[in-house]
Amino acid sequence: MVTPETPPASHPPLLSLGEVLNRADELLLAGQAPAARPLPTGFGLLDRYLAGGLRGGELCLLGGPQGLGKTAFALMVARHAAAGGEACVVVSYEHDQVTLLERMVSLEAGDSIGMEGVHLRRVREALERTRGGSLEERLSTSFGGASAVASLRGYGDRLLVHPAGPEPAGLKEIRAFVTAAAERTGRTPLLVVDYLQKIPVDGGTSDDDRIARAVAGLKSIALDLGVPVLAVSAADKAGLTPGRRLRVNHLHGPAGLAYEADVILLLNEKFDVVARHHLVYDTRSVERFRDYVVLTIEKNRSGVAGIDLQLRKRLEQSRFERDAEDVPEELVDERLFVD
């Protein structure tokens, strides 16, 4: 049985703003930054709106309907951090370690060389065969396959994963994973949780109470350990209705779920949320709309919110194109018809 997370034994001292200012000056004069440096997500336009990326001590929630690429997006952020010399801990409640490896190899190939790179299906086939060499050798005839595996070896030691298993990790274990990763890599890691509604928490009297405790626990980990936390969040039934735009109130959990988060990002199928007149009077664009998701910055304590970006789906490689764009079309919360 997982025990509830216990608060830190000691609390930070009460300081005057003058003391905080003096400490900040001491660090600045010593060539150190008193504020947490943002960790870029790798999506340039998103990072610009987030004032650089995800920050230590902050919790970012990523929500969206099933099958729209939440895990792919989260793994892309993890890959960008590790490949850039940072560390990352991925706690998955959905996938085993081999499935995560398959996704990372395909993602790496696509991120590096585009759609010509090996697809997820081909990587999976290579790992399913029982005969014939290493993974690099098995993918040597697939464009970008061997080089993707070689690149993954280069940063793989900084990307630590805790896959789905019979005993899911609770908040206490997640905190220990982050501490161990910092000691192992010498870096403050990004924490990715996929997904928060599956974190086991004792003591909740209802599903909403359990989820509230889980999200509060993740925020506590972010603050106590000074790490950025990206947590995938499931949607409720109302948020999965075709033609309806998923909003923060559609995330599965209590109404106060969003209060703990510093940043909330929501994914929606573009075809489902684009205004009707774009579909009626611009029929050539209908199929193109299906190739994109809308990524909305629903909440952002470090900058602007209410921003809609579009990302091109490349889910056959478990990824999106990184060159996000502002959405040029009008979007709606609910269409009056479904195709």
Rank of each mutant, 00 (worst) to 15 (best):
S285G: 05
E269F: 05
V293P: 03
P242V: 06
P242Y: 06
R244Q: 09
I264N: 02
N249K: 10
L230F: 06
S285A: 04
D282I: 03
S233T: 11
K270R: 14
S233L: 06
L225S: 09
R245W: 02
S233E: 07
A234W: 14
L267P: 04
V293L: 07
F271K: 03
H278M: 12
P254G: 03
V227A: 11
F271S: 00
L225G: 09
R276P: 02
H278T: 02
Y281L: 10
H250L: 09
A261M: 13
H278Y: 13
L240G: 07
L279Q: 02
K270M: 09
V286C: 02
V232Y: 12
F271P: 00
L266V: 10
L266D: 02
V263I: 14
D236Y: 14
R245S: 00
D224Y: 15
V273Q: 09
L225F: 14
D282H: 11
P228S: 10
D282F: 11
V229L: 14
R244C: 05
A261S: 10
L240T: 12
K237L: 10
K270I: 04
N268T: 08
V273L: 12
L265S: 04
R244W: 11
G239Y: 12
D236P: 01
D262A: 15
H277W: 10
H278S: 03
R284K: 04
Y281D: 02
P228M: 09
F289C: 00
Y281C: 05
G253V: 04
R276C: 07
L279D: 01
I264T: 03
K237M: 11
D224K: 15
A238Y: 15
V263C: 05
R284T: 03
K237N: 03
L266Q: 05
A258I: 12
L251N: 08
K270C: 01
L225Q: 15
R284M: 08
E260V: 12
I264M: 13
A255R: 11
T283Y: 07
D272G: 04
P254L: 12
L230V: 06
L279H: 01
E269T: 01
L240D: 08
L240S: 13
Y259K: 06
H277Q: 07
D262E: 15
